[in-house]
Design a protein around this nucleic acid. Structure first.
Lengths: 126, 126, 126, 126
DNA sequence: GTGGTCTAGACCACT
DNA sequence: GTGGTCTAGACCACC
């Protein structure tokens, strides 16, 4: 079985990786609110996974409120901007939390991590 | 392959994961400068890995200058504090770089990431 | 089989569902006592069912005394109000009985069910 | 394919019916908090459905917080009594809501439904 | 043995 | 053609 195009990982369940990928495409505005998503089968084909797996991922996205489905006409990105921005914030928090914990593992207290990243950004004029 | 004590990952080569773990124990001061490390066999046993793999990891640590070996009496943590702090900084930089790139993937510019993490730390009084 | 206008169910026999629907229209006064019902063919067409099925439903209604037929001029809603109110009560009893049994299945004694529904109605000022 | 023992319905998805059945067994205390559930395969065999379908049902129950799973040792009923009683209340509300709406369909206002059920219970000394 | 994931292939209702 | 559901059969990691 090929696993290309979207280069999936191997340690975390595929369907969760799909959720993340799709979440990103929505959060970053590659799919806009109200946009129609490709069909389950199409997305599955693109990601080179079984339609059921993609279906599971999409169900999860639906549970998160990021998409909704119209049994006959397809799946659409939610038009509720709050849900989208909320999802964005929650991912950001996860990333921050993970970052701080990794920094903590090598001996940086949160305050120090903050200083380091502050320095890093200023240094490179990002 | 068993997964105990040090819970190895599976996707990245084992020896690199060992390097990281050992690097951490040194950087965080669990092993102090000048400390004698356990023998390769012992470390291998603790981590439940093949001694050859542990050997490879230790060679890498040597290459990084974090440990040095005294053919006869064993391996020791470097006494050069500069090497240690430099290693710590370089890991931190990697973490920061990775963090910023992941935040960028969900639509946060470095400046925004900084604000977010700043807010996060203040919010939780970390 | 098409599912329109009257959205039939699929598990219970169609003619019984038709009986219920017609019973409702009479009980709730959408057809008044003495009103002439549309022809079998017409009703069948509206409900998108086979005329024979509708015929069976109407026979049942006749048996219940809710309608009577005048071989020549068509079918009419009974003018006997007692029959109508009695039918209404008997349906209500079925509903109540079913409700209590379902509540019982999840651990509510009839008395408790009563309290719950009482609370529910007051809460929402229904 | 046989569909016995638990007599499943046919109109609502099987996995949802399974969720309901299991929910009842927990809510009514047939499985007590902390009890170990039979394995997925066993439950699937009992209900005469495919293990995947049962798995889906159990995942849903887990999402509802009524059970939790210990990857290796099996699935258990939650020990959080709040979750259980909350689930019970929420089902009761659904039943009440459905009951009132059906009564409304045959011409009883909520207040009248309340009176009827009150009368019904008193009459039969339930 | 346990739960969890994945695939392949099928059927259904709705439009 | 769409989403949704279901089955059958397989593999994995964990203990």
């Amino acid at each position: 079985m090929m696993r290309l195009a979207w280069e999936l990982n191997g340690d975390t369940p595929i369907y969760l990786q799909l959720v993340e990928r799709l979440r990103q495409t929505i959060i970053t505005g590659q799919y806009l609110p109200g946009d129609k998503l490709p069909s389950v089968r199409e997305l599955a084909s693109i990601a080179a996974v079984n339609p059921n797996t993609m279906q599971k991922a999409l169900s999860e996205l639906e549970r998160l409120g990021l998409v909704y489905s119209n049994r006959t006409s397809g799946r659409f990105v939610t038009e509720d901007l709050n849900v989208i921005t909320h999802s964005k914030h929650s991912i950001a928090e996860e990333e921050i939390s993970r970052f701080l914990s990794r920094m903590s593992a090598i001996g940086y207290e949160p305050q120090e991590s903050l200083e380091q990243i502050n320095y890093y950004v200023k240094e490179r004029q990002l």
